[in-house]
């Protein structure tokens, strides 16, 4: 199962992903129309792109008063029947990552749908901070490239 993964070390917060997303999804070049949001922490100079995590048991689904959020059986994505949205924004608050955003044109709250399997933000990320990879692969990589490698290197010094 592929999902977007972020390498926070590399992200410089340029916001190209947001522009690409907004153009793709809302037909407007504007970061606030984007379904990917860059959270900026000025204290540490951190830029963290945030987007729908496609939780398995999404809290937004519970909070939606119109029951229009659902887990797609095949893709395991969290999707919406956007036409039924009344814009109450309960899902926005329920989402810990505030990854649901109000689309100012349709006045429906929307979330990332991975562009149907070809996320444009990943495609156009100039720094290469975003990757579209299998989640178990991402976990394996991390295990290998951080935890394991540190131990290996420590043992080399012994």
């Amino acid at each position: 199962m592929k999902r977007i993964a972020v390498n926070i070390e590399i992200c410089d917060g340029c916001g190209v992903c947001q522009l690409v997303c907004s153009a793709q999804k809302a037909g407007q070049w504007h970061p606030s129309f984007s379904r990917i949001i860059i959270k900026r922490d000025e204290e540490f100079g951190l830029n963290v792109p945030i987007f729908c995590m496609h939780c398995s048991n999404p809290p937004c689904e519970t909070f939606c008063v119109m029951n229009l959020i659902y887990k797609d059986h095949d893709s395991d994505l969290t999707l919406r029947h956007e036409d039924r949205c009344i814009g109450c924004r309960a899902c926005e608050i329920a989402c810990p990552f505030s990854a649901a955003i109000m689309d100012p044109i349709s006045e429906a709250v929307v979330n990332c749908d991975l562009c149907g399997g070809d996320p444009q933000c990943v495609k156009y990320c100039p720094a290469g901070a975003l990757a579209f990879i299998d989640i178990s692969e991402a976990a394996d990589k991390k295990r290998r490239q951080t935890a394991g490698l540190q131990i290996l290197e420590a043992s080399r010094k012994l």
């Binding site: 199962m1 995590m53 939780c55 398995s56 048991n57 999404p58 809290p59 395991d76 810990p96 990552f97 989640i135 178990s136 976990a139 394996d140 991390k142 295990r143 290998r144 951080t146 935890a147």
Partner: peptide
Amino acid sequence: LCIGCRQCVQACPFGHANFSLDRGT
């Protein structure tokens, strides 16, 4: 309580926390 957001998988510095796609937890 697990909502299956996989944040723990990302946060664990050892890559220990794991995720079951079948159960979603």
